[in-house]
Write a protein that binds this DNA or RNA. Structure first.
Length: 263
DNA sequence: TCGATCCTGTAG
DNA sequence: CTACAGGATCGA
């Protein structure tokens, strides 16, 4: 489920619920789910940050929990730590009886405990945040010139820019009218400029709708999010030209695109 | 750079 | 039953 916009929405909803609360116990589904989680016991949550698709739960004493939701994870607060859904894979009980839980049917999501000093190394391969000044057209150009990957797997690998996944990479390439199969380094300056704008624009509007969806009373309403132009629309008419949207496999993932509009 | 792998659920 | 899933890592 989550790319940068959804992860940011999860973090935003968490913030007011956990700030200043002390963790008194924790548990996990399997020892690989939340490595080092016990070290969080007795600490107070100071802040929730996000870096790419990672959620950082800052704790007192210069440490943090890193949470990655992978495909189907969700990080929420439940009112009673004892009443956990069967899909909860890691939980952190608070003094007041509530709990922050990693709920993930597919159990791919991970939590890990770190000292602040490890942060730089932890994210040394992670590209800049798409909404930060560091993510410029020049930066994208430079990175693209170095990669022989097809541009869509290139965008998904988190090193050129953090936070894009299978949906928004496809959507950005559609908006920029670029063929997802094209080698990154063989794409012209003009197209890269369009792509840069499309990445920021797509993530911006997806973030807006994710924040809206998460703030509504019903909570998280999946699918009601961002209306896709190409993702998941195999065989349906391209919104620009009417020809059928295609689906191909790239690096083991589905890629949706319009072979007429994207060249 | 590609395929297998981690996991479970759901759609066809 | 098989295919596939809004992710990422690992080894060949």
């Amino acid at each position: 489920m989550p790319e940068l916009p959804e992860v940011e929405a999860v973090a935003a909803r968490l913030r007011p619920l956990v700030q200043g609360v002390r963790i008194v116990s924790c548990g996990q589904f399997r020892p690989t789910t939340a490595k080092g989680a016990d070290s969080a016991i007795g600490r107070v949550v100071e802040r929730i940050d996000r870096r790419g698709k990672h959620i950082l739960v800052r704790l007192d004493g210069g440490v943090f929990l890193r949470v990655h939701l992978k495909m189907t994870g969700n990080l929420t607060v439940i009112p009673d730590a004892r009443l956990r859904a069967s899909t909860v894979r890691a939980w952190f009980e608070f003094e007041d009886g509530r709990a922050m839980v990693l709920d993930d049917p597919r159990a791919l999501g991970r939590v890990s405990f770190h000292h602040d000093g490890e942060e730089a190394e932890l994210f040394s391969e992670l590209g800049p945040e798409p909404f930060c000044a560091e993510f410029t057209f020049e930066h994208l150009l430079r990175r693209m010139r170095l990669s022989r990957k097809p541009v869509k797997p290139f965008l998904m690998d988190q090193r050129a820019v953090a936070g894009l996944g299978n949906i928004y990479a496809a959507e950005a390439l559609f908006e920029a009218r670029i063929d997802p199969r094209r080698e990154a380094r063989r794409i012209s300056c003009g197209r890269i400029s369009r792509l840069h704008g499309a990445i920021v624009g797509i993530l911006r509007s997806a973030l807006d709708s994710a924040l809206r969806a998460y703030s509504e009373p019903g909570g998280f309403t999946e699918g009601e999010n961002f209306p896709s132009a190409v993702y998941g629309r195999e065989g349906e008419p391209c919104l620009a030209c009417g020809r059928a949207v295609k689906r191909i496999a790239q690096a083991g993932r589905s890629t949706y695109f319009c072979s007429a509009c994207q060249r």
